[in-house]
Design a protein around this nucleic acid. Sequence first.
DNA 1: TTGAAAGCGCTAACAT
DNA 2: ATGTTAGCGCTTTCAA
Lengths: 366, 366
Amino acid sequence: MASSPINTERRRATITDVAREAGVSAATAGRALGDYGYVREEIRERVRKAAEELGYRPNSLARSMITGRTNTIGVVGADIANPFFASAMRGIGDVARRDGFGTILTNSDEDVALEREAVGLLLQKQVDGIIVSPASSVETGHLADAARNGTPVVLFDRDVAGLTADAVLTDSVDASRTAVGHLLDLGHRRIAIVAELRAARDMEWPNWIGSATAPDVRMLMPSGARLLGYIQAHEAAGVPVDPALIRGTGSYDPATAREQTLEALRLDPPPTAIFTVDNVMTHGAYQACRDMSIRIPEDLSFVAYDDMEWMTFVEPNITALWQPVYDMGTVAAEMLIRRLRSPEVEPVRRLLGTKLIVRGSTMAPR
Amino acid sequence: MASSPINTERRRATITDVAREAGVSAATAGRALGDYGYVREEIRERVRKAAEELGYRPNSLARSMITGRTNTIGVVGADIANPFFASAMRGIGDVARRDGFGTILTNSDEDVALEREAVGLLLQKQVDGIIVSPASSVETGHLADAARNGTPVVLFDRDVAGLTADAVLTDSVDASRTAVGHLLDLGHRRIAIVAELRAARDMEWPNWIGSATAPDVRMLMPSGARLLGYIQAHEAAGVPVDPALIRGTGSYDPATAREQTLEALRLDPPPTAIFTVDNVMTHGAYQACRDMSIRIPEDLSFVAYDDMEWMTFVEPNITALWQPVYDMGTVAAEMLIRRLRSPEVEPVRRLLGTKLIVRGSTMAPR
DNA sequence: TTGAAAGCGCTAACAT
DNA sequence: ATGTTAGCGCTTTCAA
């Protein structure tokens, strides 16, 4: 009997094996090990011992076939390599584990087709629920389907029009208004904004300017919502919005953000301040500033959406809009698990607070 | 019939439903949908249409019960919020998806008990294989068990003594020797090193000094291995090692790294250079330098293990030892999937190359 | 309190 | 090429 370097054959012990070893029926063994039904204490011990000896591990697939629950939650994020999602994922994972759930992770790369595929995969694997950061705020049929067929969905970071589901959000418009308001208060009148504006609807911003009614925020991606806040802050301050200062990249890509920032800096007159709407944009914009040897804040005030550890490493420290990212993750997981336990409660939209951390990168223009 | 806000009842269509709808047997429906066995094209179409109409989704649990394969790989990392693991996870996820696998992610927080629990969970969920970054290089019984019982294990970033398994590694000793050698070449004679040295064995370094035989690297965690490289570089250069310059934190915690760095800076004579062995240590050490208004590189040369994007944001840019983190992830996933397809091949240890990126934070001491 | 039997949804073996 | 049957490992009736 030759032994291969890594044995792949030996059959794993089943509950029937344990039952035989303990001299009881499979049903009883199941009850003893699974904490359901009635078992005499003495028997329970005997079964436990047998299980131990055989190195028995329950097959949760078989269990799930019957119970209809896998104790697994699916997560569809845009990109786990992005610190924003990484941190949120940590929050989700911590809560999930605490409550006995595993987490299946997938990346959508902001692509609706990939997201749909990912959701399909999760449904096939019979996850109990899904936490998703939708790639689009309108193409959400697959999410509605999932929810309708009994797999609850929790929206993460992004709201969606016409889908009644639990959601964990921050008020991007308000936060952005605060951040840009800070710059306006300092006296800035030419503030560049760097944002993806990937979704078609986010590009309709020319219509927002001076219009009495704000667009439905649920139709916007965070990037668009933050631009809306930028516009609202300008209008509240009575400062006209110069469309040339609005730099869209069309994708989550630092290189393009860098280029767009360079474009902005070349304007005449140039901006006296810049606002980047997330950490990817910040990355590219900051690089552009360094490449051009822009002095911050003397030449340009800098405000970033999303606080990152390095923002206190650079000189000057960067003024940033902080979001409770880890908590957004824990709350999302808690909402989902709560719904699994009581499916009937009304869906809730939880809005978590943000905070502008004023540091050295902002000052009055000169 | 009141409709609840989120329907949780409606039974999902099964293959039997599809078969009935298409007027064939369940077996045939399965063949048509699952791409196995023979089906007439005409029938295949009919079944497909029925499946479509009913919104049928295969239940992969049921399939896995029979095939014994879940098309899922488990990942046990220390902390997904750490950019190192986040990036690796992205690599794993990309390859996994490409080859039709899902990924279950768990964090061990460098705790063997948690790791063991995580592995147990993954085994119950019948993952096809596990990628793990072991919390200990000696307490690895649970990993050996998994491998022995037919769930292959790929070691990620950390080798393990006495476990024959595939592994994706970098040569930490060599890389560290290069990094510290760079400082020694510049003329530095007092180089502080900040490392976790959590594992008991990593603390046996006093024995390594001047000993002809190096300890078995497979018994060391990366932190210990990098210290070994530090010592070897010193010995090669004929520079004595001052134990006071070796600062262990005992945990992956930037606050402690900061404190240990402050201690090092207070030494008399102070170090002229510092080497941090991973991004968490770097975080704390860099903070300490900023708090003390240390001028880099005039007062202190700085070399970091692990390149991070912000290292080109700060002034001066930080000299860093780069590792192919994303690729380590893709390679780990590829090795695992290869083994799933051909279990008999001999386990392989893949060593990926690293690179010292010299930037402005290092210069000759003055 | 225990056991026998049925069955979750699917695929594999065996007929035809 | 298709259908019938059995069964993956477990939990849940139902009887005893």
